[in-house]
Nucleic acid binder design. Structure first.
Lengths: 152, 152
DNA sequence: GTAAACCGTACCGCAGCAGTCCTGTATTGG
DNA sequence: CCAATACAGGACTGCTGCGGTACGGTTTAC
C-alpha cells in the first residue's frame, strides 16, 4: 500500500508528455487523446495542477495549458501536493490533532517527523524532467536503485 | 495525503510501548488498556503483525505477544508491509499491470522505481527503536503530557 | 456575437477501511 | 480431564473518500 491516487498517477503521465515540449500550449482534449485518459478526468487534474502552481492556463479560443516552469524545476513533491494535499504519513502531525483520541498518551508523535522528512526529501529530489528520462522503460535495466547522487 | 492506515498508526503506538520492555510477554487486553485503543482493534493488528513476522505470539493461559527481535532490528518498512502490504506509490509496478489501461503508452513506468526506491530506503532507515526515543527529535521538544506510567 | 476553451461546483456509485463479532485452537493449572 | 485464558482466522457491516461525470459560468479570439 502507501499508494497515491490514480489521479496523481495520470497526472504524471500527462505532465511527462507536456515536458517533452515545455513551451507548447496544449488543450485538455488534446492531452486526453494523447494519454488515453477520459477527458473529464484530464480536465479535472489539469485544473488542480493549475491551482497548485504546476501549470499555467490560458483561457479562450486557442487557449490551453503550459508548464509553469521548466521540467527540471518541477518536483514530484509539488505535483503530489497539488493533487493530494500536504504529504504526511500520519494525521497527527498536520493540524488534525483534535481527531486523535489517543493523542494525549501518544509517545511517538514527534518521531514521525523523521519519517515524513525522509519521504519529503525523496520526493523533492526527483523532478519531472527525471521522469521523462531515458527509454529505460518496460522492464529492462532501470539503473538499479543506486542513482547518481541526484537526490539527497 | 499519502497517508497510511489508522491501524498502522495505532500499531506504532502499541509497538513503541512493547519496545520499552522488549522481552516482556504482554496480552492484547493489556495493550489495549495501555494504549486506549479498543481491544478488538488491537487484537486485529497484533495478529497481523505476528503474521508479518514483527511479533512472536504465545498461546494459552499466560500467553501473549513479544517482539520478534530487538527494537533496533525492526524497521518501519516491515511494520508497514505487515499491515498494508507492499509499499509502492503506483499500481503499475507491482504486478497489477493488467489493470492499467494506459500501460501500453505509459512512458513513465520504470521511472517510478526511482521514487519508490527512495521511499523504501527512507522507511527502512528508521527502526522501531528510533521511534521510542525521547521527544527531542529535530530539537523540537514534545512535552510528554504526563502519562501515568502504567505499562512501564 | 459566436465558438472554443478553461473554471467552479455539485453530484453519485463504489471500493476499501475501521471496527466488531463469532468460532476454533492451543496451553496452563487445578 | 476439565475449565479458563489467550491467540487464530474469518465473516460481516457501516461509512468515508475517491473516481468519475455533468452542468452552468466566464474568458478570449476572430
Amino acid at each position: 500500500m502507501l499508494r497515491l491516487n490514480r489521479i496523481t498517477d495520470y497526472a504524471v503521465v500527462v505532465l511527462t508528455q507536456m515536458a517533452r515540449e515545455p513551451d507548447k500550449l496544449v488543450t485538455a482534449p488534446q492531452l486526453s487523446q494523447d494519454s488515453n485518459v477520459p477527458q473529464p478526468t484530464v480536465a479535472k487534474l489539469l485544473k488542480e495542477l493549475t491551482r497548485g502552481g504546476v501549470l499555467a492556463s490560458h483561457r479562450g479560443v486557442n487557449g490551453g495549458y503550459t508548464l509553469a516552469r521548466e521540467p527540471e524545476a518541477i518536483s514530484m513533491l509539488e505535483i503530489i501536493i497539488a493533487l493530494e494535499g500536504p504529504v504526511s504519513l500520519t494525521a497527527c502531525v498536520d493540524g488534525a490533532e483534535g481527531d486523535c483520541e489517543v493523542e494525549r498518551l501518544c509517545p511517538v508523535r514527534g518521531n514521525w517527523d523523521r519519517v515524513n522528512g525522509a519521504i519529503h526529501d525523496a520526493l523533492k529530489g526527483v523532478s519531472l524532467a527525471d521522469m521523462t528520462s531515458p527509454a529505460t522503460m518496460f522492464g529492462v535495466s532501470i539503473e538499479p536503485r543506486a542513482r547518481p547522487a541526484s537526490a539527497h
